[in-house]
Design a protein around this nucleic acid. Structure first.
Lengths: 237, 237
DNA sequence: CGGATATGCGTAAAAAATACACAAAAAATT
DNA sequence: AATTTTTTGTGTATTTTTTACGCATATCCG
């Protein structure tokens, strides 16, 4: 490993550089949730924070975020993931008691999966967005920024791809949008718009008996979505 | 100054951290332009690049970007500027021949003003966006990213505030939008939409003789714009 | 069994986007 | 100097999109 402990000297002072990951998940029961780890080391030992850690000299910030996420939560982000996006750099002078540390924050949307603590993280857990505990460092600011960004992104990117199970119903999809945007839609209009986008397909024929009040299952048409993304599409709500 | 040359040692290696500024300007003659400086030092000495430089230990990235911009181009960004936005962190492992250097890129829109080189910059100049020379480091990637971002932002923010002179005509405003988005609009529809937003006001009465083919001058209503921004508005094109 | 609730389907009204024609003044051309 | 071309402002009819809402049926729950 190229990052063995040693002594590194520079002519000018340098900040330490970390990455942090704001990972959103979703299920019907808890609504929108966020993934946190319990810190196993000082500072803020025992406090909850976003998974993340120091940048190594031979990896990009992107790679660092993925690595730290996997080490601390066992969650690995496939290259497929639509939304591993850079959220921004947080560079407040006093944001870390250890000294000058800047962080590059990322955020991603995933299907909620089992997570377990590891490495510097004593534990890893999903928290419903309404029940997030006090956070270490300036992570509350980072969370607010991520939520704001998510609300913007949802207008342009089909977030369901990443947050929902492979097949889902229209009411579920609507519930997802409503819980992120904190608004309510008329269900007929919502379904109409979604279907008109052409990125959904019904997963099975409705049983012959045409039962009505059991929802139809859909899945996303990945190919169709890719086409539309290339052409540049927009979701309006 | 806290950043005197000396020897700074750390237990783990650290990347150097810089900021770079992508500054867009606009005038009728050249259309959209970007501000570059000619590097006075190695590496890439004599090559054109974005103004920027190393982060000091007692300043945020934001402050660093503003400081370096002023030092190298004599351009100072008022706090009023709507669009000094973080563009993202560029962290390619080999992006700087001096070693590991990551940069936090910013971008801003300003009224084109006289600029002069200073500090590490031998010269500073505006380049029309179609005539940008070869750039140092990975600055071509940064420029592409900034242009993409600008095209997105224009849908939500009244970029004219920052790019146009205090008073301007409707054809000028339209020309600005057309040169950023690289499309053409019907002028009646464009004017109609713009006026309906309610953020413009005619600056003077049309002379009594009602001459037709001399454009009406407008100015932005800053107060009205602030209100709308708080309520969250959207420009469609 | 009966009432409350959820789902799908379709339509009428309102709002917005779009395409388009004309007259007058300025600018360019001859 | 006369003529043509370009530029600007104004308004309207048409199409498209968005929004609001009614209804029949099936499930859920006591």
């Amino acid at each position: 490993m190229s990052d063995e402990k040693g002594v590194y000297t520079y002519a000018y002072p340098r900040p330490a550089v970390t990455t942090d990951c704001v990972i959103f998940g979703y299920d019907i029961k808890d609504g929108l949730s966020v993934l946190l780890v319990e810190r196993g080391l000082e500072p803020y030992k025992g406090c909850w924070a976003f998974p993340g850690g120091f940048l190594k000299m031979d990896e990009t910030a992107d790679a660092c975020a993925r690595r730290e996420l996997e080490e601390e939560t066992s969650l690995s982000l496939g290259e497929e993931s639509n939304l591993l996006a850079q959220l921004g750099c947080f560079s407040g002078v006093d944001r870390d008691p250890r000294g000058r540390v800047i962080t590059i924050a990322y955020y991603a949307l995933v299907r909620k999966a089992e997570v377990r603590g590891g490495d510097d993280a004593r534990a890893a857990r999903w928290f419903p967005i309404q029940a997030v505990p006090q956070l270490a460092f300036d992570h509350e600011l980072i969370l607010r920024t991520a939520l704001k960004r998510l609300k913007e992104d949802i207008h342009f990117k089909p977030v369901g791809f990443d947050l929902l199970p492979a097949t889902f119903t229209m009411p579920q999809l609507q519930n997802l949008y409503e819980s992120i945007l904190e608004v309510h839609f008329d269900r007929r209009n919502f379904a109409g718009k979604m279907l008109k986008l052409g990125i959904l397909e019904a997963t099975g024929e409705r049983p012959a008996g045409t039962p009505r009040s059991i929802p139809v299952s859909y899945r996303f048409k990945r190919d169709r979505y890719r086409e539309m993304k290339a052409a540049g599409f927009k979701l309006e709500f």
